[in-house]
Write a protein that binds this DNA or RNA. Structure first.
Lengths: 342, 342
DNA sequence: ATGAAAGCGCTAACAG
DNA sequence: CTGTTAGCGCTTTCAT
């Protein structure tokens, strides 16, 4: 009767119960053994883990998560506002995402990425936080969703947002001091000899608005004019818009503050084509200090955002919120990196 | 006795059962109503959906998934081989990821992103596919994991890989014909007057090896020398290595094929600094045709990979595999984009 | 058209 | 130290 199992076709071992039968113990014991629980006899634990490995057994996370009421997954939402397609392919956001993946992996969390189009889906936030699929949420970019995020923050603690900090806001945000960054940019342009400034970029997104505001502060203080040249981030439309602005305003400006390096690089090209020498005839400062900034000719002066530090901050704060702490926002200092364009 | 519910403090309605009690029906009915099941009376269905909306009710996906044995989530794994940190921040991979997110969202799937370090975790693949957390898997880049991926493909159907196609391989792959791309690059260099070639890039990754092989084919056929200059992709080490190679070989070459545009841009800068005119003294062709290619001075000639088409292909094939079909691989044609560097 | 009941695969008391 | 038991929140037969 007692037929020893020489382990011929045992059939696939998919569940913890299969494994239990094979090991001649109960499912509970297997669960404990696999979790490395010290309450289980060291030898049986080792035996079970051996068996699991031999059969390539993998715990069903779905079931485990449901039972334990936690998932080990952090949601990352990228809301796409007006500018749609652009944001996500923007080098800055992508780099931030890469660092986030690093950090979260490091802390044993998976990352569930979701692009959301707010005007098409009113409660993208509730859908994510209420799904039970994620323990917490990181939102990359406020886009035009400031109000909705504020509202969600009232009930939902484990959420951290990359973006701009507003006086008295409720949601926890990590981001660069954009206004200060704008100031640094304008100051540099003036120091490099500029006397008539222009800002290239969309001023609707709150981050860009702050950069423009900072530059305007400095310009006003110095009694220097600054004109806003609205420029989309979409790669295909960017060069045309820049060309148009330059055709109209080039004669009246000698210093450009570009809202992002991507824009600055495009400006550089247009300036070159129009024969406007940089920095002699036209000074140029970008924002972000992407890797490309060091590669252009001439190399681009830019305002550096420490993306890695930003990612670390986002994850650190989120983890603390997951632990119940009501954390403060984190504002990172921008840094002027002087190269050759201003 | 029959106290009507004027809905005072009903307490939070978190589960389908809460909702059922509120609606005065059974949980089963609520489940059907929320699923839009036509078997439920149209009026009660509407009433329940109303109630759900009013209370901001969200279905617990975890439980739903467990029961239905599907998740609506597609895993995306990025294996980091030797070059570690680099791959993920590489503009090409990031762009591909962005398009993937687009496509998957479009088809109603979420995306679970996981960076894996194969040498640190032997069964990263099994851990992902067996977790029950994802319905299928997209692997971005074969890195040095060709064998492991082949092995997994034997048991696991719903997996598609971005990378290079090998004769007779088992796993389903989507990627550019790198060898052909290499050929196009070399042919262009020769057509532009080059007579002594160099390849800049790491030849260990299988994709790059194929690019080099293609270029070598052409060089051999034309009786022209080509030397391999191993160059890491890491941003910090790249310029130094390029400078070293140029110092050693610049006099003996007049055409460079760079394995990626990122590398090509760095080359351009180094060439400029050494006073080597492009394309007069040195022709240069990149690979990928990233947005930056159009922005350099002079604009970069490059071999275009259609990233959006690649993402569409990956998702399309994966969906068909999820439906049980055993799909063929998809090889995309590269395209020479002539600008000014060759 | 709806309710009752069984269970997806796992974990965590609670007993022994 | 280990087995038994009761669910996590949902979906889906099977009855009615």
């Amino acid at each position: 009767m007692a037929d020893a199992d020489l382990s011929p076709p045992d059939g696939p071992v998919r569940t913890i119960t299969d494994l239990a039968r094979l090991a001649g113990v109960s499912a509970g014991t297997v669960s404990r053994a696999l979790a490395g629980n010290s309450l289980v006899n060291a030898r049986t634990r080792e035996r079970i883990q051996q068996l699991a490995r031999a059969h390539g057994f993998q715990l069903n996370q779905m079931a485990s998560n449901l039972r334990r009421q936690r998932t080990g997954v952090v949601g990352v939402a990228i809301p796409l506002g007006h500018d749609r397609r652009q944001q996500i392919s923007d080098a800055f956001f992508m780099t931030l995402l890469g660092h986030l993946a690093d950090e979260l992996t490091e802390h044993g969390h998976d990352l569930m990425l979701r692009r959301v189009i707010p005007d098409r889906d009113e409660d993208w936030l509730a859908r994510f936080t209420g799904s039970g699929m994620v323990d917490g949420l990181i939102v990359i970019g406020q886009s035009d969703q400031f109000a909705r995020i504020e509202a969600a923050a009232a009930h939902y603690l484990p959420m951290v947002v990359w973006g701009n900090h507003q006086e008295g806001q409720r949601h926890c945000v990590v981001g660069t001091d954009n206004r200060l960054g704008g100031r640094l940019a304008a100051e540099r342009l003036l120091a490099a000899g500029a006397t008539k400034l222009a800002f290239f970029g969309d001023t609707a997104p709150i981050e860009f608005a702050a950069r423009f505001a900072g530059a305007s502060d400095v310009a006003a203080q110095a009694g220097v004019p600054i004109i806003a040249c609205p420029t989309p981030l979409a790669v295909d439309r960017m060069p045309g818009e820049i060309a148009r602005h330059l055709a109209r305003h080039a004669s009246r400006i000698d210093g450009i503050f570009a809202a992002t390096d991507t824009l600055a690089v495009a400006c550089l090209k247009q300036l070159h084509e129009r024969g406007l020498a940089v920095p002699e005839r036209m000074r140029l400062v970008g924002f972000d200090d992407l890797p490309v900034a060091g590669q252009t000719t001439p190399p681009l002066t830019s305002i550096r955002q420490d993306i890695a530090a930003g990612a670390r901050g986002l994850v650190d704060l989120l983890l603390r919120r997951l632990a119940g702490e009501n954390t403060e926002s984190l504002v990172l200092p921008p840094e002027l990196v002087v190269r050759a364009t201003a």
